[in-house]
Amino acid sequence: MQISIAVIVLVLSLIVFSIFYRGLPSLTWEMISQTPKGGYYFGKEGGVLNAIIGSLYLAFGATILALVMGLPVAMLMNIHLRKFKKLVNGVRFLLDLLWGVPSIVYGAFGFSVMIFFGMKTSLLAGIITVSLFILPIMIRAIDEVVKNVPVGLLEASMSLGSNKSQTAFMVYVRQCSSAIVTAIMISFGRAIGDAASVLFTTGYTDSIPTSVMQPSATLPLSIFFQLSSPIQEVQNRAYASAAILTIIILIISVLSRIISNKYNKNKIS
């Protein structure tokens, strides 16, 4: 049984180690400060700045959109619809189902909707698709904590004359701030790392997008495309890009841990 634990820990360290071992030697300042120049995919100079910026745009956009839609729904389920237990549990059930839907299905769905409206691959289409994909994660992560806030807080707030929305967005949001930040971090990590849903919808370019209607490169796809090149130099850059993505994910993971620990100290229950 101890072996199984050892396997899990070993595998994680092996993943991180092997990515860094191959990626870090080829990781230069040029890689993260320049967009691909002509002949980049044949081993000439340039970097993956377009993919890094594109991924950050996409992840920020999708996370904000998912938060704008997700936070109100999580509050609605627990405050406004508090008495309708069956309905709320039904919605939770649906969200869990949606959570399990693979991202490629969202990608294919987003793509067919795009065709229907005559849209081209663009940052906006990517943001909408990815936000749909992370929405269930966001809502369930917030809901899980809002659910357990003592009823007393709601009663106290209502008895002081505030309405349900004020209670939700001024009292509960503050009470659950650490959970909300954690939910944002998890969703952001999901959004920045997902490749299958942006494959269809966001497209790929070598320049940094200047508007949401333009296609955009993303880090996972950039890794994927560089890795399929037969040239060793380009493959090394793929490993370097993978190291960049891993660093971003590790930073997010550590950051969310620190933030949630910090905010957890001043809580009622």
């Binding site: 899990i8 595998v11 890794i223």
Partner: peptide
Amino acid sequence: IDILAGIPSIIFGVW
């Protein structure tokens, strides 16, 4: 476990 859950699938592919 949490870090393992957060690693993007493309990284697993590269690994």
